[in-house]
Amino acid sequence: MRLELRDVRYVYAPGTPFEVEALRGVSLVVEPGEVLGIVGGTGSGKSTLVQHMNLLLTPTGGEVLVDGVDATTLKKSELRRRVGLVFQFPESALFAPTVEEDVAFAPRQLGLDEEEVQERVLESLRALEAGELAARSPFALSGGEKRRAAIAGVLAMKPEVLVLDEPTAGLDPATREDLLALILGLRNAGISVVLVSHDLDEVAEVADRVCALQEGRVRAIGTPAEVFYREPAQAPATVRVASLLRESKPEIGAPVRFAETLDALRALQGA
């Protein structure tokens, strides 16, 4: 699926003294099978933006297009199946007595037969290496396990676009790395992933393109190198190190991912 936002605007509490303009004309495209990282400071509009991707919020201006078709003309349930949204701290929405039933809830609503539901549940839990959690109560899980169970629930809908809002907040570093590997796995299976994160280091590792938001507008959009080297002070640690060295060692280039940066540093030392 190609998901496009055209000049999207959103105002919270319009016409009241508490009116806040959260999005001021955002245009971007989520291309099929890419990981689009969305970064930006606290309050830049990241979470508001992603809630427009499945019309959980209706834009007060502009439009959302699914493969060129105005998303408001699609059935909401269909749109939300195709664009799966995982909120910040999604574990707070876990409710069923077992993880298995929790993950099965949404696919069951689609009217699938029980065999298909079970298959999807197992498949999603396995994708998150959470198969052993199936029979456990979601409330007895650790933070990282709950997070995985909650993401499995959205994955079981087989979305074409998976939108993850701060999926690694509060996860230990090893669990975070597992989740990033999962994102790349989904991308390689043809699913588009929108990754909202304030952790630039992790965006650097997985994003094909990056969109930087600032005060409700797109400040920059492009490859990670294009976006991050434009403003190295607001860049991942790898880019900050490399851009500090670039003045006297231009041969270092513009590495972004950890492995690239390490190669560039080694080449520098070997020279």
Partner: peptide, 9 residues
């Protein structure tokens, strides 16, 4: 400001 209109951070 109303807390509901604030970002997570």
């Amino acid at each position: 400001r109303e807390p509901d209109t604030l970002s997570g951070g």
